[in-house]
Write a protein that binds this DNA or RNA. Structure first.
Lengths: 360, 360
DNA sequence: ATTTAGCACTCACAGAGTAAGAGTGCTAAA
DNA sequence: TTTAGCACTCTTACTCTGTGAGTGCTAAAT
């Protein structure tokens, strides 16, 4: 073991100040930060040599690392983590900034779907990173209408509409054509059994029971129930939209291959966003099994009427300006929560599925 | 003018053989090809010196070029073109290869949409290039059903179904609620005016007329017509999917910046694919105004019931193994055409739109 | 016990010089 | 018309070198 060195391995306030300075400076320039730069640019009133000693300690403590001997330091994951959780002081949004965001977001008449799209667009523009939004509203809504529409020989389209305005459809093929009476029976049956039911409550078992019930009347109706089951599954899973992902391609610190793969498949993202948490959350790509290596995911949940209704955030390089971006995201989620909860009555968003049925 | 040289500027069969050898070898190795390599590897029974003379002639004829003096030769655009059109002899697919493709593609029960997705996936895997598919089926289909479904106060969902199975829906808000008679009038009117009409024929003017006609009966119906108009626009534009575009980033001969720009915007691609042509077509990026410089686009159209229904191909570097890839693409389009036309009667793919209507 | 100045040391990076190797064009002979 | 031979060109890889940034350590100062 070389590199054994007499440094005081105690974090004190100066060391923290230095760590913060290193992270700030690294975020600003993207270059490894040396002791001299810190002593000159940040008013920690000690000499470069002292800072060097502290930096050596911070390195041994696992907060900083050197790309190579005799280069400056860059933050480690732990360094970023400490910085984000404890050290940085977020820059409060100015009134102009808030107004700008409000304008970009929309007002209480803006449909929910558009609201979160606007938020994503705003984030993309301001941060120059990819924005990501999820909407789990459909999951917490109730079925407001079910329709079965004959569209061809033995061919029916089922339509499922929820209270929050999602519309899903799916084509189903039956073995036989239904006559009016049969169709009416089925429509009435599902209307009675599904109308007003919360999407979250729908389960496969429930549909299994319906298949049984309906089959008693007419066996060949079951594909319709199965179709409904699949639609309800679509509703249950949260929608995830990533916008501005091309911005990630111009981040030199991200691997282009990984970014492109991410753009195509969005690997691992929805898992990361399904966790429940409160406040803002910062996750690093390399620490979760997320497609892009040195990336950072900053997200916050918005709420509707007290309930989590989705999340909103950005994906960028680890080296993003956290102290600026975090307040932006916080403000946006807060405003969205506010706008959404304000008027709960009759928002309509169309929102649809793709589905495919086998030919035979 | 230096480089003026006494060479016989006549293409003869040996020169063509040499050109083919240069292209083959360059495709194989990616390195400029020298006279020695050809005399050793390809059985043209003349000395390297003779080949050198012929290569000088081929260079003056514009089929070959030298990256720098005293390097081997690489093909020019014209060289590739001649090779592709006349010289190469495509390697016929073995039975195993055909079976492999068939397995990857699906069978006659595989829905159309999935069929072309599978084809794209197969091409990506086999060629290690980006695959591109378009589907203009919706455009050549006819409207088979239009429905207007009341779903809430002053709120209606329009449903548009085409003969090829695309289903699009959209929510519309009206100023007033419709009574049964009004709804029936409207449904009957659009049913009469749209049913059986080819999607390709639908135009804004047509909908303008409908707005006028319908407004005469009741002014506030026009949002419904506008909604239909928007849905029809969605149907008209051909769908274009590029898969595996990350593969292009690992092609050393392509400019990464250009690839990135292409991935972002797919510049120029849909124009290139909208041309009608028969058989297989090879286009070079630099010759068309297509985003990626030294790229090559190899596409073929598949047909459904005799009519062009979309295209299928790859985007790769100019230096791709044409004689292998072209038979692959030909086989795939042939099989797709076959599978699609086989049972033309009642294929159904659901395929839907997202839409948003303002709240009030 | 901390902090600081001074100094030797390490490492990445860029530029210059060099040797090897591949491939050519040209000439003259077959 | 083809071929062998040869001088020439150009790329590539390698080595050597100097420079600059930044460090770690020591010894002196506070």
């Amino acid at each position: 073991m070389l590199n054994k060195r007499k440094v005081v391995l105690v974090v004190n306030s100066r060391k923290l100040k230095i760590l913060a300075a290193v992270v700030d400076e690294y975020i600003r320039t993207g270059e490894p930060v040396g002791s001299k730069a810190i002593s000159e640019l940040y008013n920690i009133n000690v000499s470069a040599a002292t800072i060097r000693n502290d930096m050596a300690a911070l390195e041994q403590l696992g907060y900083l690392e050197q790309p190579h001997t005799s280069a400056g330091r860059i933050p480690t994951f732990a360094g970023y983590r400490l910085y984000i959780d404890e050290l940085m002081n977020p820059s409060a949004l100015s009134d102009e900034e808030k107004q700008r965001l409000d304008r970009m977001l929309g007002d209480k008449d803006t449909p929910e779907e558009l609201l979160i799209q606007n938020a994503a667009a705003a984030l993309t523009e301001i941060t120059q990173c990819a924005a990501v939004v999820t909407n789990s509203a459909p999951r917490f809504s109730v079925i407001s209408k079910v329709e079965v529409i004959p569209t061809g020989k033995r061919l029916y389209v089922i339509l499922l509409i929820t209270s929050n305005g999602s519309i899903k459809n799916k084509a189903c093929r039956l073995e036989f054509d239904l006559d009016n009476e049969q169709l009416e029976f089925f429509t009435r049956y599902i209307e009675e059994n599904l109308s007003g039911v919360s999407v979250d409550e729908l389960s496969e078992e429930m549909f299994d029971k319906m298949v049984a019930a309906v089959s008693a009347y007419m066996v060949s109706l079951s594909p319709l129930v199965m179709g409904l089951c699949e639609l309800s599954e679509d509703l249950r899973q949260q929608e995830l939209t990533v916008s501005g992902s091309e911005k990630l391609l111009s981040c030199s610190e991200l691997d282009k291959m990984e970014v492109v793969k991410f753009i195509e498949h969005k690997n691992g993202l929805s898992d990361l966003l399904e966790d429940t948490f409160s406040g803002i959350q910062v996750k690093f790509g390399s620490e979760n099994n997320f497609a892009i290596g040195n990336s950072s995911l900053i997200v916050s949940k918005y709420r509707k009427g007290g309930k989590e209704a989705g999340s909103l955030g950005i994906i960028g390089p680890m080296r993003v300006d956290y102290k600026k971006i975090i307040p932006y995201i916080e403000y946006l989620t807060q405003q969205i929560s506010c706008l959404m909860s304000g008027n709960d009555d009759d928002i309509i968003i169309t929102d649809t599925t793709d589905g495919i049925i086998p030919k035979s």
